[in-house]
Amino acid sequence: MNAEMLNISPAVVWVIALSQLLTFGLTVWNMISSGSRANAKRLDEHAGMLARHSERLQSMEQAVRDMPSRDDFHKLDREMVGLRGTMAVLTERLEPLKAITERMQELLLERGK
């Protein structure tokens, strides 16, 4: 074996050059992808926030659906007007009873003296 056959210095130079290129390429890749990883993290946070807002919106929509409608309030108003009339009639019919009880109380107080 002569010295020309065992000379590996050109191969070492190529290996070092490829190693440097690979290191440079990986550095550039990490710089580019680090932004996308940060964005992916922010996107995950926003997705969670969006899911919470969606749940809140659904609960609000359900609450609005369960609220009485305009027709329900109108029916309630009519019923209250009817009750007001019934109470007026009842009050009018109780007036004689009130007078009787007042006279009986006066009589009992006079007898008690």
Rank of each mutant, 00 (worst) to 15 (best):
E4N: 03
M5G: 05
L6D: 05
N7L: 03
P10N: 05
V13H: 13
V13C: 04
A17F: 01
A17S: 09
Q20I: 15
L21R: 14
L22K: 14
L22P: 00
V28G: 05
N30A: 04
I32R: 15
S33G: 00
S33C: 02
G35W: 11
S36T: 07
A38L: 00
N39F: 14
A40Q: 00
R42K: 08
R42Y: 03
H46N: 09
A47C: 02
G48R: 06
G48W: 00
M49E: 06
M49K: 11
R52D: 10
H53S: 11
H53V: 03
E55A: 13
R56V: 14
L57K: 08
L57E: 04
S59F: 03
S59T: 07
M60Q: 12
E61I: 12
Q62D: 02
M67P: 02
S69W: 01
D71H: 13
D71E: 10
D71M: 06
H74K: 12
K75F: 02
K75S: 09
L76G: 05
D77E: 01
E79C: 03
M80S: 04
M80L: 10
M80T: 04
L83D: 07
G85R: 07
V89W: 13
T91L: 08
E92N: 15
E95I: 14
P96C: 05
P96L: 01
K98A: 13
K98P: 03
I100W: 15
E106V: 12
L108W: 12
K113G: 09
